[in-house]
Amino acid sequence: MRIKVSRREHFNSAHRLHNPEWSDEVNERVFGKCNNPNYHGHNYELIVSLTGEVDQSTGYLYDLKELSDVIKKYVLIRFDHKNLNLDTEYFRDLNPTAENIALVIWRILRQQIDEKFELKITLYETERNFVEYPAH
C-alpha cells in the first residue's frame, strides 16, 4: 500500500533577489521590491512529504517525530531567522528564489532520508505563492 505522509514546519528568513551580472536597473525591473538592497523577509511555510510503502511491523510509512527532528536539525536551524544571502553558504552564489530554496531544501533532506521514500518539498513564500519540488 503506497501512502504519503507530510510534516508542516515554519521558518522566517530574509533575502534579496539579485543577479550580480545585471545592472541595477535590470535587477530592479526583473525583481522589483524583492531586489531591495536592504533585503526583505518572508514567513515561509514548509511541507515535507514522503511517499512509499507502510512498514507492516510499525504501521508507519515514516515516524513523523523523526521527520520533524530531521527537518529541524538540517533545515530550520540553518534557515530560520537568517538572511539567506549572507548567513547561509547555500545562497552565496545562488539567487534565493522560492524555487531555489525548495530545491536546496530537497537536496539537504534527500541526503538524510532513505531513497526508498519519494521526497517532495512544498514551500509557501506567501499565502498565495508556493512552489513544489519535484513538480510531479
Rank of each mutant, 00 (worst) to 15 (best):
K73T: 02
Y74F: 15
I71H: 00
I101N: 02
K82N: 08
V70K: 15
D93L: 15
K73H: 11
D80R: 01
Y74H: 15
D69R: 15
N95E: 09
I77Q: 10
N100E: 09
I71E: 06
K73A: 15
N95H: 03
L76W: 04
F91C: 07
L86W: 03
F79P: 02
K73G: 02
Y90H: 15
H81R: 11
V75F: 12
N85V: 08
K73C: 09
N100G: 04
F79A: 07
A98W: 05
P96C: 08
D87F: 07
N83M: 03
E89Y: 12
R92M: 10
E99Q: 13
I101K: 04
Y74I: 07
D80A: 03
I101H: 06
F91Y: 06
L84C: 00
F79C: 07
H81G: 04
D87L: 01
R78I: 01
E89H: 10
K82T: 09
F91T: 02
Y90L: 05
L76T: 10
F79Q: 03
R92I: 03
R92E: 14
P96G: 10
N95R: 12
H81W: 09
L76V: 08
R92P: 00
E99H: 01
D93W: 11
R78W: 06
Y90V: 04
T97C: 09
I77E: 14
V75A: 13
D87P: 01
D80Q: 08
Y90Q: 13
I101D: 04
Y74K: 13
P96H: 06
N83I: 11
E99N: 04
A102N: 02
A98T: 14
L84F: 05
E89T: 10
N83Y: 00
A98G: 13
V70Q: 08
T88S: 01
E89V: 04
N85M: 11
D80M: 04
K73Y: 00
N100Q: 07
A102W: 03
T97Y: 06
V70P: 00
D69A: 13
A102L: 11
I71K: 04
I71V: 12
T88R: 05
F91N: 10
A98S: 15
K73V: 00
K82A: 03
Y74R: 12
N85C: 11
V75L: 11
R92D: 08
E99C: 01
K73M: 11
D93N: 15
N100Y: 00
N95W: 01
I71D: 00
E99L: 05
Y74A: 11
T97W: 05
I77C: 06
A102F: 07
N83L: 13
L76P: 01
L76I: 14
L94I: 15
I77D: 14
A102P: 00
R92S: 12
K73Q: 15
